[in-house]
Write a protein that binds this DNA or RNA. Sequence first.
DNA 1: TAACTGTATTATCTATGATAGTACACTTAG
DNA 2: CTAAGTGTACTATCATAGATAATACAGTTA
Lengths: 117, 117
Amino acid sequence: MIIIDYKDTRPIYEQIVEKCKKLILTGALRADEQMPSVRSLAMELSINPNTIQKAYAELERQGFTYTVKGRGSFVTGGDGLVRQRREECAEQIRALVREAMEIGVTREELIHMIEGM
Amino acid sequence: MIIIDYKDTRPIYEQIVEKCKKLILTGALRADEQMPSVRSLAMELSINPNTIQKAYAELERQGFTYTVKGRGSFVTGGDGLVRQRREECAEQIRALVREAMEIGVTREELIHMIEGM
DNA sequence: TAACTGTATTATCTATGATAGTACACTTAG
DNA sequence: CTAAGTGTACTATCATAGATAATACAGTTA
């Protein structure tokens, strides 16, 4: 289920891309499963089809989906995406940890925080 | 030193706010130290003074600086800011860790990663 | 064939960011 | 006191990105 947050400053198509990526990575949308059609999703979210198309084009560009003209958009198979996302996650965490350390947070505090989750 | 990245999609004033916050939190700009004047910084970065003013207003709104009319803008003292930023950092890390775990990364892997930094 | 897919194009509207120019009140060095 | 420096406020204008609107076309499939 996709919900648009109109208070969010980020553009709608970007929110859709991010939400779809999460659904795919968590397995909510399975490999080779068909994505909702451009028009139906636009109708469902009460937004313009062009906005959905922009989101879908970006998803395909990033390798999360593939499209067959006349048939629809489908979720890319394989776990390469998950591995890729893991690396991205790791890099983001590293960057934040670096920043935290710069202002005096210790390794121990961070580890303790993660252990307590 | 502040450098504007024109490839960055974020607005200039936002980049300036973020950079100043980092300089303050890391101690590069010390408490009660005077910030560059709106006009001089605008000149230095070759951008409009209004853009600097917008960034400075935001910095003050977030409590990072205080201003005295006719004198200038100054860095806020105290370590309340650092504590606040620590909390923000922690929350961001928690969110990322949650996401990482959703796609199968284990606590142990994360902790090992941090220990190795 | 009809109804569905994705894709492409053009035009328009809106909001945001940035610029430009000016003005005013305050502080301070001279 | 004056001049030059501060922050602040305001209006107008421009550029761009995001979103909408309305069509149109090619491919697929029941």
